[in-house]
Design a protein around this nucleic acid. Structure first.
Length: 595
DNA sequence: GCCGTTTTCGGCCCGACTGTTTTCAGTCG
């Protein structure tokens, strides 16, 4: 099956190919369509299977003609038009244009004049000085391309936000402390708290921009200055992370903040709205003719366009603009609203710290309760606990709860879902736990139908309270498992099982679109850190960001409530079966005693 | 090629930086 990613790559190449032919507006159209596919929550193949060509045409930027292209790709895996265009230019366009400074026109010139087909050819051409000899090229163009190639070879792709968060926070603090800047903010995907960030966009106000820029390009960790101007500069840190800075006049702060936060699709829509109202929107403000009518704050930019202010996490043209226009944006959960953590690992299995250390560290962060959820026995590599281990751990938790003040420790487990959907801990022991999380940790590539069955069977166990990291993806490392999310959501609702937003920076699972889908079905969610050390207990922030992107309110997230509320909700999940079990047990006992 | 509270035709987001040009094309975000 062809994936959205593959379709996006082909549409982007088509855009480049048309651009090389000097076509005027097709390139933008294909670019836009690529963006629409990229932002789509659903696979094009699924949309096509359900609603055919019509369904595809509903994707933003996709019209009749591109929908037919996508259909052809889905059905045959090929695209005639693409092959035809490519015949004249049989080169690795996607690869070449990934190199900074190399765009479609450059690719064309390089092929026609030097026969460059891929990055390897280009590197050779650069090293032999052939590129510098081309018209409109020179020594420094050649060097820039070469540097781009070398950089790309050992560092490609995007960084998980959790990885860059400490670095960015530190740099931001440093710049804020400098008297040269009167204001500094991080924009871009970092401000939107996207799961991964490609580079960091800084925005600043400075009395003396030249001096301020000079300071910026010489901060400690800089490995290379890529660009340096009066109002715009780019640097690369030793870690490979690129940081751009723009300095804007004070009266443009709000519109610049808005503009550089994006995302692109969101911005294009805003500009279109501005245009229709007879305004012009740029990073410098909202203008009516030559007169600036808004832009000092982000709020007044949105207001001038007839919109409520939209939280950055929601800005990716997924209905938020329409909701803002009709004043129907939900009041989403705030940072710090989560007061408990329902997935925490300790040194009883693969965590680094003791139960007590984790509890104390969580209390320090202001958490009111945590659930200890160590792995279970079938996950041998983690030293998973068996029934006896869990019973022993419960006693230790009782001891600590009697001793510690200010935090409640709940008894839990991250119970492994076996290949057939059964759980590897007996119901008798599960019944004694406060929090039974279940999760998939193996056999990730099962066919969709089987995987769905597997999860449904696990959720049907009456003791289960939470489905941990439902898609099991690892960002940049492992794709999500394939299952029918709709069916799982329905089952979760039926069995009163909460779905987890795992805040660990490599998981962030569920992601925004799935969160919205779960909430629309009326399922409750929890935000957990999945911490394996005391330091990782701070990950909650990233889970809250995911929840905000998924339009979740405070009421949608169980662990924004005090511990009693959570236990009550989880208990309801278990009460009936537990009650019946007890009745049964009593009956057995009575029978045994001959009563 | 897409799209529509100005449009089914006629528009299409906007601006900075670089390199190499002697006024601007290409790239990027």
């Amino acid at each position: 099956m062809i994936t959205n990613g593959e379709i996006v790559t082909i549409l982007r190449e088509m855009a480049a190919l048309y651009s090389m032919r000097g076509e005027a507006f097709k390139p933008q159209a294909y670019e836009k369509a690529a963006m629409g596919v990229e932002e789509s929550d659903d696979e094009m193949a699924d949309i096509h299977a359900k609603n055919g060509l019509k369904g595809l045409e509903e994707v933003p930027g996709v019209g009749r003609s591109i929908a037919e292209h996508i259909e052809e790709l889905i059905l045959t895996g090929k695209l005639h038009k693409y092959d035809e265009l490519k015949k004249n230019l049989p080169v690795d366009i996607a690869g070449l244009t990934q190199i900074p400074g190399v765009g479609p026109k450059t690719v064309k010139t390089l092929y026609q004049k030097l026969g460059v087909r891929d990055v390897k050819d280009l590197e050779k051409a650069c090293r032999t000085g052939k590129v510098a000899a081309l018209p409109r090229f020179g020594k420094s163009s050649e060097l820039k391309i070469l540097r781009g190639i070398v950089f790309h070879a050992d560092q490609s792709g995007r960084f998980p936000i959790g990885l860059v968060y400490p670095v960015v926070t530190r740099i931001l603090k440093g710049l804020e402390a400098s008297p040269l800047f009167s204001r500094v903010a991080v924009c871009g995907s970092f401000r939107r708290q996207k799961e991964t960030v490609g580079d960091i966009d800084l925005l600043a106000i400075a009395k003396d921009p030249a001096k301020a820029m000079a300071h910026f390009v010489s901060i400690d960790e800089v490995a290379e200055v890529l660009q340096r101007g009066e109002t715009k500069s780019e640097i690369r840190l030793e870690s490979g992370l690129q940081i751009d800075m723009r300095i804007v006049p004070e009266e443009s702060w709000g519109s610049a903040l808005q503009y550089f936060t994006g995302n692109k699709a969101h911005n294009i829509k805003l500009r279109t709205i501005a245009m229709k109202k007879g305004y012009k929107l740029s990073e410098y403000g909202v203008f009516k003719g030559a007169k600036q009518i808004a832009g000092k704050t982000e709020e007044d930019v949105y207001q001038t366009l007839g919109l409520d202010w939209i939280p950055p996490e929601m800005r990716h043209d997924a209905g938020e603009i329409e909701a803002a226009a009709s004043h129907a944006l939900p009041l989403i959960i705030g940072y710090g609203d989560v007061i408990g953590d329902l997935q925490v690992q300790t040194n009883w299995t693969d965590g680094r710290n003791s139960i007590e250390d984790m509890a104390l560290a969580a209390a320090k962060l202001g958490r009111e309760y945590i659930a200890i959820t160590d792995h279970t026995k079938s996950l041998a590599m983690t030293g998973g606990l068996d029934e006896q281990g869990l019973i022993k751990q419960m006693k230790e938790i009782d001891r600590l709860n009697a001793k510690l003040r200010g935090i409640t420790i709940l008894k839990g487990a991250e119970v492994n879902i076996m290949k057939d959907g059964s759980l590897d801990i007996s119901d008798e022991v599960l019944a004694q736990l406060d929090v039974v999380g279940v999760a998939v940790h193996s056999h990730f590539t099962m066919p969709r139908a089987e995987m769905t069955e597997r999860i449904l069977r696990a959720l049907a166990n009456p003791h289960v309270s939470i489905l941990f990291h439902p898609t099991a993806r690892l960002i940049n490392q492992r794709p999500p498992i394939d299952f029918d999310f709709e069916e799982v959501v329905e089952a979760a609702k039926r069995h009163r099982v909460a779905l987890e937003i795992d805040a660990h920076p490599y998981r962030l699972d569920l992601h925004g679109a799935l969160i919205r889908q779960a909430l629309e079905a009326g399922v409750k969610l929890v935000i957990d850190t999945d911490a394996h050390s005391t330091a990782e207990l701070a990950f909650t922030h990233f889970g809250e960001a995911q929840a905000r992107r998924g339009w979740a309110t405070k009421a949608d997230i169980l662990n924004t409530q005090p511990v009693d509320g959570v236990l009550k909700y989880l208990g309801k999940n278990q009460r009936k079966p537990r009650h019946e079990q007890k009745k049964q047990a009593h009956a057995v006992q009575r029978a045994g005693r001959g009563i």
